[in-house]
Amino acid sequence: MAGSAASRLTRTTRSQRGTEELPWVRRVLIGIAVAFASLFLVLPLANVFLQAFSKGVAHYFGALADPDTQSAVLLTLTIALIAVPLNVFFGVVAAWLISKFDFTGKALLLTLIDLPFSVSPVVSGLIYIVLFGLQGYFGEWLLDHNLKIIFAIPGITLATMFVTFPFVARELIPIMQAQGSDQEEAALTLGASGWQTFFKVTLPSVKWGLIYGVILCNARAMGEFGAVSVVSGHITGQTDTLPLRVDKLYHEYNQAAAFSVASVLALLALVTLGIKTWLEHRQTADFARAQSDPSAE
């Protein structure tokens, strides 16, 4: 998931010969893979849509039109709209710092960036309860100033940002490190300022990696359950995001509605996968073109 562009590329260009298995071995292996993928991935996904439409198309759209569900959609979009741009900003800054400069504490920063991946999402949520909850360190102060973080949009946003922080930075760091700073230095010698260099040279050269990171970050921001569940408070129509809404509907024995909402999330995942595949294809095509151009050395 956090693999660099390079590792994705070698997979498609590596020669297969010499490592090929006997035909029947190959067929058995492919069969196992297909069976596994069908059983654990395709079947459940198909089931989501089957269940969603089990009470008919009208019921499906009715469930989506429910005001509480609408509010959950709106909240999820709002959170993503705040969390993703902020994480893009921090991710780009962190990647830029790590790949272009040497400073003490660089290894520590790298570890910190990975922290959200290694910590359970529930713990990520609890961190904010401990900090900003009523019994938390800043709880009283917040109450005095009439500020609400926990069980409100700020808390959900913070938890989402924490969980999705690594995606952009992790995607950019290997690309930026591989590129070095030659192009930036060239821009400087041609008279470009630091900002001009960043926007005209650095950013365009990591464009695909950045888009890829944004898409992964967005998918996770919209789909996050654990951390958000801890800080949201599950107030119907107010602090329920889409995943929380699915959970709630399901526990209210409203299966068809739960699956209708779930199908929206599943669709989102499919679109994300589609864009991701397309991006990888583009990168590979760019790479292959660079390798095979007859006029190149």
């Binding site: 030659d182 192009q183 230095e185 060239a186 821009a187 010698t189 040279v201 365009p204 050269s205 464009k207």
Partner: peptide, 13 residues
């Protein structure tokens, strides 16, 4: 000044 880098450092985009 005009500077030519060892690996040329052309803007690849």
């Amino acid at each position: 000044i005009g500077f030519v880098f060892q690996g040329y450092a052309l803007f690849k985009t």
